[in-house]
Design a protein around this nucleic acid. Structure first.
Length: 256
DNA sequence: AATATCGTCAACCGCTCCTCC
DNA sequence: CGGAGGAGCGGTTGACGATAT
């Protein structure tokens, strides 16, 4: 049995996402949800494979993503969960709201793993030659360990960056200057977490509604479907549920 | 100032799992 | 029950910025 590749390799773009692609994906998923990742790029007008779109959405564009420095509590949680779960990053991510498995995995490999290794080496050293070690050496090691942790998270701790701009764009996060810094920052600044909260419900769509994304612009949208998802006080809510375009202008993806 | 090295992180790849028929 | 197809997961890579020499 030869499985068809997840995407047709020909003519599909790879590599870093452009702001334009981000806007298209954002607009499409916001409006229609992720009803079928494989078909999605075709309908969204993206030259990407569905897998790539899914990853981009889940790891970057999805609302309520927490970016930037990890708090001490988060790091401790990751370490303890990793002890019990191993490399099950998605399960670990499930315990850390706003963090993605990819981000946690990266953080583990770039920071936590090294730190733990260093710590265990120190502990082993202490165990084996506790008496041999001079007090100066011990102090020095202690210092390096402490500075290690503190310098990793200069702004850490209590401050969890979750402002709209930081969740939606890497721009505002202290350590996050990514390739799409300029992703429609002005548009995204208009979006607040509250106003995006309703999008969570789009992530597990069900029913035929989602399988027919382009039926028409005035397709039926039951009031009781949207009602619980939209904050009537939201500036994006125009008081009517009749038009999905009340939220997104597909032309330039400005959010109203 | 130029170059080398290192660290970070977004994205890709291949595999497994899950669901449907 | 087994095949097909889509989604999800984890390992790995490569680009890019920061820092050291």
């Amino acid at each position: 049995m030869v499985r068809t590749p997840c995407c047709d390799k020909t003519g599909l773009k790879k590599g870093a996402w452009t702001p334009e692609e981000d806007r298209k994906l954002m607009a499409y998923v916001t409006r229609y949800g992720c009803w079928n990742w494989r078909q999605l790029p075709k309908f969204a007008g993206l030259q990407r494979c569905g897998k790539s779109c899914r990853l981009r959405w889940l790891n970057y564009l999805r609302p309520n993503i927490k970016r930037g420095n990890y708090s001490k509590e988060e790091e401790e949680t990751i370490i303890s969960l990793h002890e019990t779960m191993g490399n099950r990053w998605s399960a670990i991510a499930a315990q850390l709201p706003g963090r993605t498995d990819n981000e946690i995995k990266n953080h583990w490999h770039t920071n936590l793993k090294k730190r733990l290794r260093k710590k265990s080496v120190l502990e082993a050293k202490e165990m084996s030659s506790d008496d041999d070690l001079s007090q100066d050496d011990k102090n020095q090691e202690k210092d390096t360990e402490e500075t290690d942790i503190s310098t990793q998270n200069p702004a850490t701790s209590n401050e969890i960056i979750e402002s709209p701009s930081s969740t939606m764009s890497p721009q505002a996060s202290s350590s996050d200057i990514s390739t799409i810094d300029n992703v429609a920052a002005t548009d995204w600044d208009l979006i607040s977490d509250n106003n995006f909260a309703f999008l969570e419900a789009y992530e597990a769509p069900s029913g035929n509604f989602w399988t027919e994304p382009f039926l028409s612009d005035d397709y039926f949208m039951p009031n009781d479907f949207m009602a619980p998802l939209v904050d009537p006080d939201s500036p994006f809510f125009d008081g009517e549920f009749s038009s999905p375009f009340a939220f997104i202008d597909m032309e330039d993806c400005n959010l109203y």
